[in-house]
Write a protein that binds this DNA or RNA. Structure first.
Length: 466
RNA sequence: UCCCCGGUAGCUCAGCUGGUUAGAGCGGGUGACUGUUAAUCACUAGGUCGUUGGUUCGAAUCCGACCCGGGGAGCCA
């Protein structure tokens, strides 16, 4: 016996009158002594549940069907019919309803057919996928991941699985989680009394990666167009709605390319994903628009249809200085743009996504290519209305001598980056890449306010349950 | 890490100028009723008021400490 997805049953593509079997979980039950019950069943295949009409003649009607509560699992075989009621086009006239799993204590079952606070749902992260919101988030997240892979595949990129365990103790971004098999109670010590990591699993200190960028550059400088898409870890004590200790990042890297090529890529890339999700997740997005963020769909559509504005950092500072707007922190050449500045540019001044390019070298990473003015580097940020920075990237420094000097300027050791410098010693070419925080993208796509609610089991300081 | 706010029933909250037996809606149970749409109506069960110490004749309410959660800032993606 095969099970029909509820999405297919509701699609209109299955002929009315056909007998089908569906399986899923009860969202609500309403019943009538006059002779039947309405059971809304969801199986995750789409936003809407299907309505099962269970007649009182069913042999288990009184002792089972009338005892169904939210969360019970069941399998139902019956005839697909046009619905007599409002709210759905099709429903199932049940011939059999088999209860697969009861909710053992309906009195305390946490997921009810009502609005819960997201704070509460985080405490039951294993049950929250049963809610409308988290089902919809999950489908959008999946669609976005698919869109990313398809975009790159369509455009000749290779997906590179860069390592999660890394020996580089400084990939240029944030504090790292240590990976070790040493006994924390009694670690081996060297002559100086320090922990002897030579005796650790890898014979040296190792950490969880904070970025796949450096290793992926090695593949870029042979396969030309590559990207990473995987988990990333930051051991920073950040407690905000925009930070996770474990999150997913997308990092394309392209050879024979400069900053303008990278800006083109970021614009095409974002538009492709947004269009893809708009096409595939209509019902889910409609739900977000109704219940989560009234602008959810509008802002996606407007981004897809807008031309991204491109300006230099210097011009951005000028605009902000001349704006006459009151900022908590003044905009000044040499300082990074604050969230309030980014919002002014995208929401007030241009009313469009803005790509800001060529930042002062002092506020950017060592591997970003030094411009001829000797003051700025070829870095860019994509700023989107309503969210701020969504992408950060740069053309990489491909000149060996300049890169060595920049490493020294940043007080880093050239030894640690020797393999990275090899890429400049042997067949170096201009190349560029950016990083996109996947969960931040999902926040933007769904309108969900907290990053902890767009990843299945969020890891944040002091919390790693489930 | 810093600054704010909060913790009362399974959930969402009210009660907080200290004063008999701590309330509502939803959810659960029972019944009524109905092609219903987070149905409706009636009845009913359910609480060590985050923990702990203190002030007081008396603390959910005031004070201290601790724990937990949230928002903002910094860092960043």
């Amino acid at each position: 016996m095969s099970i029909t997805r509820i999405a297919d049953a509701l699609s209109g593509e299955i002929p009315v009158g056909l007998e089908i079997t569906i399986a899923g979980w009860v969202r609500t039950r309403r019943d009538s002594k006059a002779g039947f019950s309405f059971i809304h069943v969801h199986d995750g295949s789409c936003f809407n549940p299907i309505q099962v009409v269970a007649p009182g003649e069913l042999e288990n009607y009184a002792d089972e069907i009338q005892r169904l509560t939210t969360g019970c699992s069941l399998q139902c075989t019956g005839t697909l019919v046009e619905s007599g009621g409002r709210g759905q086009s099709f429903e199932i006239q049940a011939a059999t309803v088999e209860v697969l799993g009861w909710v053992s204590d309906p009195d305390t079952y946490p997921i009810q057919p009502k609005q819960h606070s997201f704070e509460f749902l985080r405490e039951v992260a294993h049950l929250r996928p049963r809610t409308n919101t988290f089902g919809a988030v999950t489908r959008v997240r999946h669609a976005a991941a698919q869109a990313i892979h398809r975009f790159f595949d369509d455009n000749g990129y290779y997906w590179i699985s860069t390592p999660i365990i890394t020996a580089s103790d400084s990939e240029g971004a944030g504090d790292m989680f240590r990976v070790s098999t040493l006994d924390p109670e009694n670690p081996p010590r060297n002559e100086k009394g320090k922990v002897d990591f030579k005796q650790d699993f890898f014979g040296r200190e190792t950490f969880l990666t904070v970025s796949g960028q450096l290793p992926v550059e090695g593949y870029c400088l042979s396969l030309s167009k590559v990207y990473t898409f995987g988990p990333t870890f930051r051991a920073e004590n950040s407690n905000t709605s925009r930070h996770l200790a474990e999150f997913w990042m997308v990092e394309p890297e392209i050879a024979f390319a400069d900053l303008d090529d990278l800006a083109d890529l970021s614009e095409d890339f974002l538009k492709y994903i947004f269009k893809y999700v708009l096409e595939r997740c209509g019902d889910d997005l409609q739900f977000f628009e109704q219940r989560i963020e009234p602008e959810a769909i509008k802002r996606l559509e407007s981004l897809v249809n807008s031309e991204f504005v491109r300006i230099d950092y210097g011009e951005a500072i000028e605009i902000l200085e001349k704006s006459g707007a009151k900022f908590e922190f003044p905009a000044k050449w040499g300082l990074d743009l604050q969230t309030e500045h980014e919002r002014y540019l995208t929401e007030k001044h241009f009313s469009a996504p803005v790509i800001v390019k060529n930042y002062p070298k002092e506020i950017k990473a060592f591997y970003m290519r030094l411009n001829d003015d000797n003051k700025t580097v070829a870095a860019m940020d994509v700023l989107a209305p309503g969210i701020g920075e969504i992408i950060g990237g740069a053309q990489r420094e491909e000149r060996l001598d300049v890169l060595e000097a920049r490493i020294a300027e940043h007080g880093l050791s050239t030894e640690a980056y020797d393999w990275y410098l090899d890429l400049r010693r042997y067949g170096s070419v201009p190349h560029a890449g950016f990083g996109l925080g996947f969960e931040r993208l999902i926040n933007y796509l769904t309108g969900m306010a907290n990053i902890r609610d767009v990843i299945p089991y969020p890891r944040v300081p002091g919390r790693a349950e489930f």
